[in-house]
Design a protein around this nucleic acid. Sequence first.
DNA 1: AAGTATGCCAACCGCAGCGAT
DNA 2: TATCGCTGCGGTTGGCATACT
Length: 263
Amino acid sequence: MGRAPCCSKVGLSKGPWSPEEDSLLSDYVQKYGEGQWRSLPKKAGLLRCGKSCRLRWMNYLRPGIVRGNITADEEDLIVRLHALLGNRWSLIAGRLPGRTDNEIKNYWNTHLLRKLHSAGVVHPAGGRDLPRSDNLTKQKKSKSHTKKKEDDGVKNRAPFQKTRVYLPKPLRVSPEFSRTNSFDSSGSRTSSGSPVEWPPLFEIKDAVYEMLIGDGGGGGAAADFLGGEFSPELLSHADSISDNAEMLDKVYDEYLQLLQFPE
DNA sequence: AAGTATGCCAACCGCAGCGAT
DNA sequence: TATCGCTGCGGTTGGCATACT
């Protein structure tokens, strides 16, 4: 058996937060800042565990949170980012200002996954191209109202054209990049130290695909587009690594390094 | 109108990375 | 170098809301 749940201590509350608890947490964090989640509940007068407090703050109370109504553009970006990054919800959330990883994860699991699946899109991310347990247990499916809702949400969108993607191994993300600071606001720089204006992530992804698995030597243009940020070794192999999962992993890792740890 | 099925989402759980010692 | 504790992340669950029969 694993360790005891963090909220198992006698006297700690679980479940939905009350307005009073929200107020206590908000006041404390705004006064003393985020962090020290372990000791925060006691100091703030909350009968919650630190993890619960952090989650509540990050997903609900934090300033700038945008709730509901995921736009078509946001959805498109989520799909594209997921194709590149897999289930790294915090990274994806970092590209969507005001959105939380939890919200995006929920949206993916309740809307996009089903839609992509019904469109015949196979996603290799973590081998998890089937719906979550909720859908597994409740899956009888495809009620008319469900379809209507989905149609209302995102109309007339072209099916996502999927190229098979081999996802990189999991990568931890620095807090500076994740959640609070999106990539857009992180002041990215090139390895030489000069500021760089990155193109949208999905354009980079497309360029990587072109370089790696595109038809007929698009590698040069792709490399130009990417600004030569990938190592010469990788670029020199661009013509021969079609469908090479290991090399794709390397490219993704390099890209993610550039993305997450600007010098 | 009542019962059932399904969708949605807030919150919990456990694992793993990372820094401190 | 090894260990420990804290934190963040992704997977999963539980319960309410809504649609359907």
